[in-house]
Amino acid sequence: MQALLDAITALPAIPSDACRIFHGRGGLYPGCEHWTLDYFAPVWVLTSFQPVSEAELGTLQNALAQRQQALSPEQPELNLIYQCRQEGDNTETRLLSGSVPSPHIVSEAGTRYQVHVSRGQNHGLFLDMAAGRRWVREFCAQFHAANPRGGAKVLNLFAYTCAFSVVALQGGASKVLNLDMSAGALSIGKQNHALNEVGAEAMGKASFLPHDIFTTWGKISRGGPYDLIIVDPPSFQKGSFVASKDYARLMRRLPDLLMPGGHALLCLNTPKLGLSFLTEQMSELAPDLVLVERLANPPAFADVDEDRALKVLLYRAPALA
């Protein structure tokens, strides 16, 4: 636990953006592999992936309270959520101190998102995907500047709360189709669009389909072809998507859905499947698509083995002759 305490003590300032403070899961801090600490202003979220004692929690709570008091004396109350995650769906979440705003709105690079840190394992914004969101915004901005026909047409698969859609529209995308099985997640996604004032302005630009992707190919195809396809699925969601067997079903569809010269952003976040899982299957199932790069993960998510970390690969379709 000492490395986590050291990170709290060394914190130079209270962050303004939602971010990860400590990433023990990356394996760089022996003995702290089960700990993570995130900040969703004004709430700290402390997570353990194994049971810990009340004494340990008390020590960490006191350290955070002291550091916050030193850095932000005008904010005396410590808002702290603790979550214990174990194998399967065995998750405990409780408020250790303070309170959580409702609604709870956080920011990242000037964009606002609604989060819900006191329930479930997914808080509404995946912090490790910050570089992916930045890339999508920049890609759409460059596309809009370079194309007289207007902004990019984007397909956002497994859209969740539609963060990719918001930044795509901020970058100048002309149309985004968001697809996710969860109508509740898409409802929050619509609120995220409104929070960033791309709701009314983007009327007709953003659409939301609460459907199973594998039964919706007709609608997806009719909306295409697309300049950018974002594929960010869960690694394992029983009854919905299992990456080890279902990702291939997506890969073989990509060439027909992309514009000539279009791009596909493929994401995979599980330590059980390495980079070769994506690259080898893409070579077999979509050989015309060329691997451009792997996007670097945020420094806060550094891992002792990059093959275990989040993998975000950019592919490009061949341009017209």
Results as ranks from 00 to 15, higher is better:
113 Y>F: 14
17 D>Q: 10
133 R>W: 10
1 M>Y: 06
206 A>R: 01
220 I>D: 00
193 H>M: 15
46 L>A: 08
176 V>D: 03
7 A>P: 05
54 E>I: 00
205 K>H: 11
290 V>A: 15
181 M>E: 09
228 L>F: 13
27 G>R: 04
105 I>K: 07
177 L>F: 12
174 S>V: 05
279 T>I: 10
300 A>F: 07
287 P>M: 05
140 C>L: 06
139 F>R: 01
22 F>E: 02
243 A>D: 11
281 Q>R: 15
274 G>T: 09
140 C>K: 04
1 M>F: 11
26 G>I: 03
46 L>D: 01
51 P>A: 09
176 V>C: 14
280 E>M: 11
164 F>G: 00
5 L>E: 07
310 L>A: 06
283 S>H: 08
3 A>Q: 04
138 E>W: 07
68 Q>S: 09
97 S>C: 15
233 P>Q: 09
263 H>V: 04
305 D>A: 12
231 V>G: 01
211 H>R: 14
28 L>Q: 13
131 A>W: 04
80 L>G: 03
241 F>K: 10
34 H>V: 06
44 W>K: 05
13 A>E: 14
15 P>Y: 05
310 L>Y: 02
63 A>G: 08
240 S>L: 13
304 V>C: 13
147 N>K: 13
164 F>M: 05
258 L>C: 05
91 T>S: 14
226 Y>D: 02
243 A>Q: 08
55 A>E: 08
154 V>S: 05
228 L>P: 02
128 D>Y: 14
305 D>P: 03
142 Q>V: 10
119 R>Y: 03
316 R>G: 05
24 G>H: 04
162 C>W: 01
144 H>V: 04
143 F>A: 03
194 A>Y: 06
36 T>D: 10
118 S>H: 12
36 T>P: 06
310 L>N: 01
267 C>E: 00
25 R>L: 15
255 P>E: 12
12 P>R: 11
32 C>W: 01
316 R>F: 12
85 R>M: 15
278 L>S: 04
57 L>T: 00
260 P>R: 00
204 G>R: 08
142 Q>K: 15
306 E>I: 15
144 H>M: 12
63 A>T: 06
311 K>G: 04
307 D>M: 11
85 R>H: 15
97 S>P: 11
202 A>V: 04
84 C>E: 15
305 D>W: 09
245 K>E: 15
223 G>F: 01
125 L>Y: 05
36 T>V: 15
317 A>D: 06
74 E>G: 00
190 K>F: 10
233 P>Y: 03
249 R>V: 11
